[in-house]
Design a binder for these strands. Structure first.
Lengths: 140, 140
DNA sequence: ATTATTGTATTAAGCGCTTGATACAAGATA
DNA sequence: TATCTTGTATCAAGCGCTTAATACAATAAT
């Protein structure tokens, strides 16, 4: 794995985001077991303490819980997981729109540029946890 | 001024972005004079050294230049300024799309959510430096 | 000529992040 | 029972960011 970190913010905070994304998109499935602190440290080539620090934050937010010796697990509450996904998406959109706005672009230009980029690369829907009553279907 | 900084990344890097945005959107007009290091330090309530560090980066990128005792000035090269704006916008869009994709959303969902948010808040176009032949007009 | 203003450089201190090393607690496993 | 595996805690070292204080260089202003 090529290091996913930049040197712009603390590694443990970047790990928090990476882990949340894995939970949000289902890579780490609801109720599943999280790799051990030591394993994750090897995978991400960081110190176990740094992983521990990131996981402590996820724990504080009730996204994971640990059982002293058997390991650490993703919450089984799908609402919580949906909540994280929605929250991250909202933050993401708000930050994006605000930054574009600060660059001087207006609504229409922002939308046009967004559409251009997103249509060109094609992102496929891959959500693992869905709204109640929402069916999984592919967009293409 | 309420502090525009978060504690997630070094202040000097956040200043680099803030300053670039001011140049990109015309708040700091092409060819204009930049406030003194000491003034900026007061305005942003940081140490002059921290401002200096941020400005040194802008200088490295040819966005500003300093004249030993009369002050510091924005480049007069409009292409350079447009380049920064375009570059920042590209980074912004790419980061946005990638993050949304990592959350599991596909192209259509991303576009829909983006449109919803951007239409709801209305960002007005406010660019100071335009493409050659591009006329300024307001969207509303 | 003198003073003020500007950018720039240096130093020391404090603080947070990261690492490496080590150790302990407690349930799982042999 | 003994060992392994897990999460957790602690300590010291190194490094970068930030601040404060100070000084210098060079031009503008008086």
């Amino acid at each position: 794995m090529t290091d996913p970190f930049d040197d712009k913010s603390p590694i443990y905070l970047q790990l928090v985001i990476i882990f949340k994304e894995k939970i949000a998109n289902g890579t780490w499935p609801v109720g599943g077991r999280v790799d051990t602190v030591r394993d994750l440290a090897v995978q991400f080539r960081v110190n176990p303490n740094t992983v521990q620090r990131a996981l402590a934050e996820l724990e504080r937010e009730k996204l994971v819980f640990s059982e002293r010796t058997s390991g650490r697990f993703i919450t089984s509450d799908e609402d919580t997981v949906r909540g994280v996904r929605d929250h991250l998406a909202n933050l993401c959109i708000r930050e994006y729109a605000d930054r574009m706005s600060r660059l001087g672009y207006g609504s229409d230009v922002i939308l046009k540029m967004t559409e251009e980029y997103i249509r060109e690369k094609r992102f496929s829907d891959n959500r693992g946890v869905r709204e109640k009553g929402e069916e999984k279907h592919d967009f293409d």
